[in-house]
Amino acid sequence: MRRFLAALGLALLAACTRAPAPVAFFAEGMPERLSDWNVVYVADGRLRLNARVEPYTLDSPLFTDYAHKLRTVWMPEGKAARYQPVDALDFPVGTIISKTFYYPVPDGGRGGDVVLRSADTGPEPDGGLALDKVRLVETRLLVRREAGWIALPYVWNAEQTEARLMRSGELLSLTLLAADGSKAQVDYTVPDENQCAGCHGTDLKSKAIFPIGPKARHLNRDFAYPGAGSENQLAHWQKIGYLTDVPAGELPKNPSWDDPAAPLDARARSYLDINCGHCHSRKGAARTSGMWLDATTRDLLRLGRCKLPIAAGQGTGNRPWDIAPGKPDDSILPYRMESVDPGVMMPELGRSVVHAEGVALIRDWIAAMPAQDCGS
């Protein structure tokens, strides 16, 4: 019996330490389980990254109800993304981009609906997440197939052992607990297929979807790689064979929106670029608004200064201008950011609470603009 138990113990230990199966790319179909792809997997109480799955971060991430995000990219052996100066990197067929949304939890609070509102400090040193410290909510995949990109949302179960495909979306009620003890209710929305396309359909004419975050200007920053130390992400991707055609010289870079050492204008533009610019651009779904907030727009009227709103309806809050320089209280932009009314709020998707720090940044930015009489 002792020999049997010892043998069983060794077998279980070997099973726990055995390397996972490789990442699986599905050229068609919609696998029901996140584990079918095997990009990230649960083992030994942790969410882990498979071989050649690279974590990354953005200088200014898109706001989603204070959720933290673990971002990864995987490409087939021998394939690489091609550098592009403005648009998202040109990823090869077979690419899988994942984004896992999660919240830290109070001590002993795993499995409950109370989660912590805190700054996103990224994954742990090994690139993964300790499941006794976080509540996994969903993992979204962007998969590059021959016909283009496809978006797949997977929702994690209560046991934090598996995530299932939810093509129709999901609504989760959570309570955000802040450091001062205050609480806020979050109606966290997992997007359905149409809503995924609503944001990722960055070209209104083609209707095709594309990644939003992995652009050179968002990736051009250092990242603490597990076991490799801190390194610039674009340089790292080149080194491991994930990125080609990068030009010599200085590359575009957005500052972090909350970096106090960066100029206020640059921080505000970076925030608007990632949160609004994929729709509010010359190609995006909100191009007919005439207000373009992407990084390439330089025309002050297009940026909203002294610009009359177009078909905004109740979204104006009876304010006359998208941006009234020097007067945030007279500007439509912060008014819509401060609202949670579905008929008023901007962005329209991805949040149920106000990003207080983001609103404060944009209000400060507008207040710092030289006052200007926009007329009547």
Rank of each mutant, 00 (worst) to 15 (best):
T288E: 15
G317F: 09
T297W: 06
N318H: 14
L303I: 05
G315E: 02
R287E: 13
G313Q: 06
M291L: 15
T297H: 01
W292Q: 06
L293D: 00
G290V: 07
W292G: 04
L293V: 03
G304N: 04
A311L: 13
P320C: 08
R305M: 14
R298A: 11
M291V: 13
T316Q: 08
L300G: 00
L301R: 10
L300D: 07
T316V: 09
R287F: 13
R319I: 08
G315A: 12
A295R: 08
W292E: 04
S289G: 10
G290D: 07
R298C: 07
C306N: 09
G290A: 13
T297R: 06
G304Y: 05
A311E: 11
L303G: 07
L303T: 01
A295D: 06
T297C: 06
K307T: 07
T316D: 02
T297Y: 05
L308W: 04
L293Q: 04
G304M: 02
R298I: 09
G317D: 11
R305L: 15
L301F: 11
A311H: 12
A295Y: 05
T288H: 15
D294H: 05
W292S: 03
T297E: 07
L303V: 05
R305K: 14
Q314K: 13
R287A: 12
R287Q: 15
A312P: 09
K307I: 03
G290C: 11
W292L: 13
P309M: 03
T316E: 03
G313L: 03
S289R: 03
T296Y: 00
T297A: 03
P309A: 04
C306V: 01
R298L: 12
R298Q: 15
R298Y: 02
R298D: 11
T297V: 07
G304R: 05
R319E: 12
